[in-house]
């Protein structure tokens, strides 16, 4: 498909004398500086949170308030009605992969009249990513993804894929900056019978500890939850809008304290 128009020229991704693929390692390095994305698998859902890097007073976020599927469109995307994706790495590369994932999911729906199984969607992206580690002339995608999804085969699932085209399933994981810290925190606190409500709390706490800034707010955070509708049994993907994220932070007592309000209170 994509590979047919790139003749095998150039020498971007070849083995080093030590048997390593430097371009892949550099791509991984790029990701380890990107905003953190964190996923936790619960018994009755999957939770995804991401740290936004592009922020500022002058940034136009009007579309994020009402438009799209929720989120500001920087880190968390709806890939299909049963899969939410969180991306870390080069945003432009990520956008291209998100487009690819969405059309792959729709093609599966057209062919088989069912939502794409989560692992299959991860595989489809990994096939594409792997191609760029082998065929010359092009650099690999500088993107790691988390896939939070549901399908009737394996119920709730959380997958991670990296620029080499490797993927793996997780109970809780983290990509991007400070992922080591986050992962050891998750390892300590994760329980196998965790519920979505607890997972939301766990994700919030972990995010607040790994992010650079001391206080959390919707301008620095994207958040999404995938559950199953109790009535229809269909997966329900919810990407939170800025106001909803702030409400959630207040609920978990992690919100930015408004100093003026405190002054007045005292």
């Amino acid at each position: 498909m994509v590979l047919t128009f790139c003749p095998p020229k150039g020498r971007t991704t070849i083995f080093s004398p030590e048997g390593r693929l430097y371009q892949i390692e550099y791509a991984m390095e790029a990701i380890s500086h990107a905003g953190t994305v964190l996923g936790v698998l619960a018994t009755d859902g999957v939770v995804l949170a991401a740290e936004k890097k592009v922020t500022g007073k002058l940034l136009d976020l009007s579309e994020a308030k009402e438009g799209r599927y929720g989120g500001s469109g920087e880190k968390i995307f709806l890939l299909n009605s049963n899969v939410i994706g969180g991306v870390a790495g080069i945003t432009a590369d990520a956008n291209s992969l998100v487009n690819y994932a969405r059309s792959a999911a729709q093609q599966h729906l057209l062919r088989y009249n069912e939502d794409i199984p989560v692992e299959l969607l991860a595989q489809r992206l990994c096939d594409l990513k792997q191609g760029y580690t082998q065929f010359g002339g092009l650099r690999p995608f500088g993107v790691s993804l988390l896939y939070a999804g549901y399908d009737p085969h394996y119920q709730f699932q959380l997958y991670h894929s990296d620029p080499s085209g490797n993927y793996s399933g997780w109970k809780a994981t983290c990509i991007g900056a400070n992922n080591g810290t986050a992962q050891s925190l998750l390892k300590q606190e994760y329980k196998d019978d965790i519920t979505v409500e607890e997972a939301i709390g766990l994700v919030m706490r972990t995010m607040s500890k790994t992010m650079d800034s001391t206080t959390l707010g919707s301008e620095k955070l994207e958040f999404a939850v995938l559950t199953v509708d109790p009535v229809t049994k269909e997966p329900r993907a919810k990407i939170y809008r800025p106001a909803e994220i702030d409400a959630l932070l207040v609920k978990h007592d992690l919100a930015k304290k408004d100093e003026d309000a405190e002054m007045k209170a005292t």
Partner: peptide, 17 residues
């Protein structure tokens, strides 16, 4: 039915509406 579902979903994805 399948084709229109595909086309409308692709429209919704591209247009975010």
């Amino acid at each position: 039915r399948d084709r229109f579902r595909y086309l409308v979903n692709m429209f919704t994805i591209k247009e975010s509406r």
